[in-house]
Amino acid sequence: MQGAFAEHVRALEKAGARTRLIRTQEDLEGVDGIVLPGGESTTMTMLMERVGLLEPLRDAIQRGLATLATCAGMIVLARDITDGMGGQRGLGLLDVGVRRNGYGRQVDSFEAQLHIDGLDGKTFPGVFIRAPLVERTGDVEVIASYDHHPVAVRQGRIVALCFHPELSGDLRLHREFVRMAGAKN
């Protein structure tokens, strides 16, 4: 659609996956997992509505398609969005409430070392760019926090991150995702 898809493609292929860009309903056929990348959530949602991709995508994720959502991708998945564009709706599948640009504007974008559950104890370089702030969590497992707010959550076969592993050069989260997508649901 729009956003940092090329960086995810590179990271996933290095992690041993075969990839395909998904821009239409037909592209969804036969994939084991999907990445909802960073970008502008308003742009992505508008385009997906326009070409009729929003509903098929929602169905596929509900049926257990492995999903990695980063930054704007997390916003697209979230149940509640504050400070979004008037009436902004997404997929509403992930039980969190997020505030768009909750960490501030671009001048407040930052890098920080994160402790993520299940990643061999070593810290992960978190790159936060106009990142969403997770203000409420429901039925999800928080796997990393920063400054008293969750920055990584898991819900079934969905992993959603406020930061950008595809820009960090660290492949561990992409490897985990490829492993999860390859496992049967």
Partner: peptide, 24 residues
């Protein structure tokens, strides 16, 4: 560098925003 160990305004986050604009 901030007190809590985070870094603002690095080239990575500056160029990173442009990555998010791609295809747009």
């Amino acid at each position: 560098r901030n007190g809590n160990g985070s870094v603002k305004g690095s080239f990575k986050v500056k160029a990173g925003l442009a990555q998010m604009l791609k295809g747009g």
